[in-house]
């Protein structure tokens, strides 16, 4: 029996390294216990060190890509499930193309969940200006992801916001980008971030780009689920926008058509001059 401790930061590399060693030594999935965040501690710790990597392991590229994503799922069984599939892949060629295989289908479903979570993180992180002065501006955000998505998503922010310093704090892992260097640290409670005047402008935009004549609340919530609202400054306006929508449309209807402003006639005449 092997107990494999997996660190909270760098889980992907640790899992892949262990899986390679175990597979090459022919260790069955039933003989492996995956210990995420080393939470089991001494209780289950075994003296058995992992077998050395003896030979190159071949796994389909599609598996490697899927594993790189599923690893960040919150389901504690993800490591075991991935290893069990890798075990089967030794002898079942073409398994990755079989969308109806129950084990693979489950992993694909988890993969989809992580993809979605990464995507929502790219969309819904909201930075606040820390106004610290200095050469580079610095920003910080508080975010609560569904899965362990900070590490795989942080490089996106590094590619995008390379000319500023930033921090994304989460209860799980905190990412920091300072002077072009990305680093990860343990999660933390919600920090006190300074007020940012840009949020009011953003709220103004959110309220005015909304068309009250096309109220479709469910279309909004299916893409922007309520669990994200508490960390989105614009979400504070949603309720009043919905409640006021019908009255606004009614007002447009009730208002009698107005007379065109005086300048209108002059401008239109000039524009259509050659025709009239």
């Amino acid at each position: 029996m092997y107990t494999v401790p997996l660190p909270r930061i760098g889980t992907d590399i640790a899992w892949r390294d262990a899986a390679k060693r175990l597979i090459s030594a022919g260790v069955s999935p039933d003989d492996v216990l995956w210990d995420f965040g080393a939470e089991m501690g001494e209780l289950f710790a075994t003296a058995t060190p992992l077998p050395p990597p003896t030979r190159r392991i071949k796994a389909p590229q599609s598996f490697v890509q899927m594993a790189d994503t599923v690893i960040w799922h919150k389901d504690p069984q993800r490591f075991g499930r991935l290893y069990a599939l890798l075990w089967r892949l030794r002898h079942e060629q073409g398994l990755m193309q079989d969308r109806a295989d129950p084990q693979l289908a489950k992993l694909r479903q988890m993969e989809k969940g992580v993809h979605r979570c990464k995507h929502k993180m790219k969309a819904f992180v909201r930075f606040r200006d820390l106004r610290q002065g200095g050469d580079r501006r610095s920003f910080a955000a508080w975010f609560e992801p569904t899965h362990h998505t900070v590490e795989p998503t942080a490089p996106f922010f590094a590619r995008r916001f390379a000319d500023m310093d930033w921090m994304i704090a989460t209860p799980d892992v905190t990412a920091q980008f300072v002077d072009g260097n990305l680093s990860f640290h343990p999660g933390q409670p919600k920090p006190d971030l300074p007020e940012d005047a840009a949020e009011a402008l953003w709220g103004t935009y959110f309220c005015n780009i909304f068309n009250p004549a096309r109220l479709k609340v469910q279309a909004m919530t299916s893409q922007m689920p309520k669990k994200y609202w508490k960390n989105l400054p614009e979400a504070a306006h949603i309720r009043s926008l919905i409640e006021g929508a019908e009255a606004k449309v009614q007002e447009m209807r009730d208002n009698a058509p107005t007379l065109p402003p005086v300048r209108a006639e002059r401008i239109t005449k000039r524009l259509r001059g050659d025709e009239d």
Binding site: H119, K122, A123, F124, F156, R159, R160, F161, A162, D163, M164, F206, I209, F210, N211, P212, R214, L215, K216, V217, Q218, A219, M220, Q223, M224, L232, E234, I238, L241, I242, A245
Partner: peptide
Amino acid sequence: LGSTEGSGICHAYAPDG
């Protein structure tokens, strides 16, 4: 400042969906 990586990102949704 900035990046574009193929797929677009919807940063928010208004109540008009």
